Simulated assay, not measured.
Amino acid sequence: MPIQRQYSLPNCKLILQGLSDTEGTNLNPGKVLSILMSAECHIYGQESPLTGGQDFFESLVRQVSSYAQEFLSGISSPRHHSGKQELLELHRIDANLHRLTIFDGNVSRGNMAEQKPGRTIDLTTVQLFDLVEAIDQFFADSLTLPGFSLAVKPVSRRKAKSGEPIAEKVLPVAVGMSGLAVAALALFFVPIPEVQRPKEPQPQSDESVGNLETSPKNTPELGLNPVPVSEGLDSSRESTGIIDDSEQIETKENSELSLTTSREITDPAEIERLQSLLYDAIDESWTIEINADLVYSVTMTGDGYITGYKPINPAAADGVDKTPLPDLLNQKAVGRGNSQSTAKFKVFFSAQGFLEVEPW
């Protein structure tokens, strides 16, 4: 009995139909689409869908995935190929238009065989990313073509050329009617804030005031923000906020107080936004090659300022000057202490030239 899978987005719909040959195995017999018979790609505004078989679908996945990676990174790289001519091809027309060409077959020109263009479709950037999302939904479906895989390799930042920032590339995708609809839906679920009357300040006794004046000042978060140091110490240690073991022992009590009073950002959307800002800031400033992997814990405020970093592996402590972290540290934001919300991220500098930023 034929099995059908459908992956729908506002501007694109991907329909796969096939059979199952998993009887007698542990992969949900009769429910796994393991043999693809036909594939249909419906694009909004097109009268007829793009159709084909196994080769058509595999070529579609390879070309769209490679083109999307190239478009987002701004780095030209060889497209995924299977050792034979592709049935589809994608190339850029302008900032918001992308042409998809489907080839009918080969034509002979003398001693050479060239592909014969068949149908062409111009996709907007919104339609392109809906097609990418439909393909991502297919890969996330473990019951559809479980043996199919796509070898995707990261492109080296050393091959990057100066060009349009990534934020400006994806800006047309984020605006328009679809963006307004998503924003309106998100605001609908935001609870109405509860208004509370301010509490009256409690009078303090002379004894408590005296203790307050003689108590040590609160220090920033241990290992991430700068701490007060004497004038005789190296000024570079003050700017990076790195504390040695003796200072950690002396400030243990104040550090625990700092951790309890600081406000940590927990909203997933806000963390994702700050993660993107941190990646772009470091990626644009990193120019010195390294010969060892470096890992840091980096603190960032809700305003997008870096207020501290801490080396995680031994090589990171020695190679910090080869990273842009010291230059990106914002001293004004550091001076505000725990009065601001912050989020922590794990920053990984690869010796091969790759950069990764993940929530801590």
Rank of each mutant, 00 (worst) to 15 (best):
S339N: 10
V209L: 15
R92T: 07
V334C: 15
P268C: 11
L325N: 09
S258G: 14
T240Y: 09
L328G: 12
T120D: 11
L9G: 00
A281T: 02
S65M: 09
V64K: 00
Q248M: 14
L187H: 04
N225I: 13
V190T: 13
N330S: 12
H81E: 05
R273F: 11
V173R: 10
G45T: 04
E58I: 05
T323N: 06
E168D: 13
G53E: 12
A184S: 13
Q340R: 11
P191W: 02
R99M: 11
Y309T: 02
T214G: 02
D130M: 09
A269S: 14
A140S: 11
G53Q: 08
Q127F: 04
F188C: 07
G335E: 14
F139N: 01
G105C: 05
V229F: 07
V152D: 07
K116R: 07
Q275I: 08
E358A: 15
N330G: 04
G241H: 06
Y67I: 00
E253G: 08
L128C: 03
V320N: 07
K116A: 05
K169E: 11
L278M: 11
G179M: 05
L36E: 06
H42N: 08
S34G: 11
N225W: 12
E289V: 07
S178A: 09
P201A: 12
L187D: 15
G52C: 05
N254T: 13
P198Q: 08
M112G: 00
K169D: 05
A317P: 00
P201G: 04
N106R: 09
D141R: 09
R5W: 09
I43S: 01
T101V: 15
D141V: 13
R157N: 12
Y279P: 00
E358I: 13
K252R: 10
F189E: 12
W286F: 04
Y309Q: 00
G353I: 01
P29V: 02
L277M: 10
G53R: 06
A160T: 04
A183H: 02
T144S: 13
N106T: 08
V209E: 11
P165H: 05
K199Y: 03
C12S: 10
Y7S: 06
R62V: 01
M1H: 06
G241V: 03
L233A: 13
D280V: 02
E247D: 14
I102W: 06
A333E: 13
N218F: 01
A333P: 02
S239R: 11
S235P: 09
G302W: 07
T342D: 06
N291R: 13
E23V: 05
E58Y: 10
D94Q: 09
V229N: 10
I43M: 08
L233F: 14
P324H: 09
L233T: 14
Q248H: 02
L90G: 00
G302V: 14
D245M: 04
A343W: 01
L131W: 10
D55N: 09
I102E: 10
E284H: 07
L16T: 02
A269F: 10
E70P: 00
V347W: 02
G110I: 01
G304L: 04
T260R: 13
P220T: 04
T124D: 10
F139Y: 12
W286Q: 07
G74K: 04
L180G: 05
Q352T: 14
P172D: 03
